[in-house]
């Protein structure tokens, strides 16, 4: 009676999770994988093949965008880490009491608005007729309107801004768990600022660094609005191409193949990141 009751409650607990994994994660991805290998011969006949994948490699525009998206995502992740680390250190170790809560809150505020609104916020600042351009002219640094939007720098600014919070949270959490005496011991035994950071603080924060980096990398790689809006028509992002295949060209087969490739890229990068830093997924995800 007791055993069967506990089994029932276990089943009830697991069912939503199992349904979610099955219906929303596994099934669509398997379906996408299947579609990506379909070759449409005419309107009602379909055969199997790797034509879509061949297209990807033979058409340089596809793989160049793919490479560019991957590299820019890596760079964005790195930049986010560099910016987030001192902020996280300040929040975790230097801020006290109310200030700590307020600072964390301040990092959260931008996420009240959607990604679209946040991106428009940047566009208001950076566009030709925007705030920065007006100020530069007013202060005499520029003769005419300056266009700061629609280039890679603008895209990276937007992406870093979107990822910052997701880097901060794991970093603050791991740094808060660090005993201040470890840092003092690092100095006491002869270390300078740089060696204490490299040998004591960073190794301790590594699980937070890796988990923050994974989340930011995945978010950046899969983001759509920011690179499209801030990058303009010349700044190609891989998700934009997938959108074009599915929606504009109605070429689901090609879109599915590109989607699978993006999934493979992000999985390989995460695996590589874990291997290179010697972390395990279990440790990083807590």
């Amino acid at each position: 009676m007791n055993a069967s009751a506990s089994r029932l409650s276990l089943c009830l607990l697991i069912t939503p999770f199992a349904l979610w994994i099955l219906l929303l994660v596994l099934l669509p991805h398997l379906q996408m994988l299947r579609v990506s290998f379909q070759v449409r011969e005419s309107w009602d006949t379909i055969s199997w093949g790797v034509q879509q994948y061949q297209n990807f490699f033979s058409e340089s525009y596809y793989w160049r965008t793919f490479l560019r998206t991957g590299l820019m995502s890596l760079f964005t992740t790195f930049l986010t880490l560099i910016i987030a680390f001192p902020i996280a250190w300040y929040i975790a170790k230097l801020a006290r009491g109310r200030a700590k809560g307020l600072l964390f809150f301040a990092c959260l505020i931008p996420f009240w608005a959607s990604e679209l609104v946040r991106t428009y916020g940047w566009m208001i600042l950076l566009r030709e007729s925007g705030l920065f351009s007006t100020w530069l002219q007013y202060l005499g640094f520029a003769d005419g309107p300056v266009e700061m939007l629609y280039n890679d720098v603008a895209v990276i600014i937007g992406l870093v801004y979107n990822g910052l919070l997701f880097m901060l949270v794991p970093l603050v959490t791991t740094l808060e768990g660090m005993d201040d005496n470890l840092v003092e011991a690092g100095y006491d035994l002869g270390g300078n600022h740089f060696t204490v950071l490299r040998e004591v603080v960073v190794p301790w924060a590594m699980p937070g660094v890796v988990s923050g980096s994974i989340v930011v990398f995945m978010l950046t790689l899969g983001s759509y609005l920011t690179p499209i809006l801030m990058g303009g028509k010349d700044s190609a992002w891989f998700t934009g191409q997938i959108f074009t295949q599915f929606i504009t060209r109605f070429n689901w087969e090609q879109g599915a193949a590109l989607g699978v490739l993006l999934l493979v890229l992000s999985s390989v990068m995460v695996w590589l990141g874990l291997r290179l830093t010697g972390q395990s997924l279990r440790k990083v995800m807590g």
Binding site: D179, N181, L182, E184, A185, G186, Y187, D188, L189, G190, G191, N192, E199, V200, P203
Partner: peptide, 16 residues
Amino acid sequence: PNRRPVNMVFQHLALF
């Protein structure tokens, strides 16, 4: 502290 000929054993040891 890193230039003093002094080392400290911390209360909770602070082994890395």
